[in-house]
């Protein structure tokens, strides 16, 4: 039980990571593969956020009532995740655009059937 409470976020993060990786490795449909990529990314972001957590910590934002740094979480992973999410969105948008064009050319999104170039 102690183990679970200690590592639950890591388990969740890597769980998502592996689900995404599994989808990417086994699915045939390009849209599903892209979804897998997104799930995998989400896992990585959750991991990044989890490593910055301090037990009982608050958001690293000062206000009139919060002036002490004592119980604040690490701000750096949050900044990294912000960057990571933007990059993830960019790749996702481009991937979907390519999927639309690929469908226009082949009439299918099944990656096993699209073999003009050798895989």
């Amino acid at each position: 039980m102690n183990f679970l409470s200690q590592y639950i976020y890591y388990i969740g993060a890597f769980g998502l990571f592996f689900i995404g990786l599994y989808i990417m490795l086994t699915k045939k449909n390009l849209i599903k593969v892209i979804i897998g990529l997104d799930i995998l990314d989400t896992g990585v972001f959750l991991f990044l956020i989890a490593i910055g957590y301090t037990s009982g910590g608050t958001a690293p934002i000062f206000s009139k009532s919060v002036t002490e740094t004592g119980k604040m979480v690490d701000p750096v992973p949050q900044a990294l995740v912000l960057t990571g999410i933007v990059i993830g969105v960019s790749v996702l948008a481009l991937a979907l655009a390519l999927a639309i064009r690929l469908y226009g050319h082949y009439g299918t999104l099944n990656l096993r059937k699209i073999k003009e170039q050798r895989w």
Partner: peptide, 21 residues
């Protein structure tokens, strides 16, 4: 991951930003 404890952060860079930011 076993070597990375959850809920404890004493990262040099993060601390600095919190204190000096």
């Amino acid at each position: 991951v076993r070597e990375i404890p959850f809920g404890k952060t004493d990262t040099k860079v993060g601390e600095y930003y919190l204190n000096e930011g």
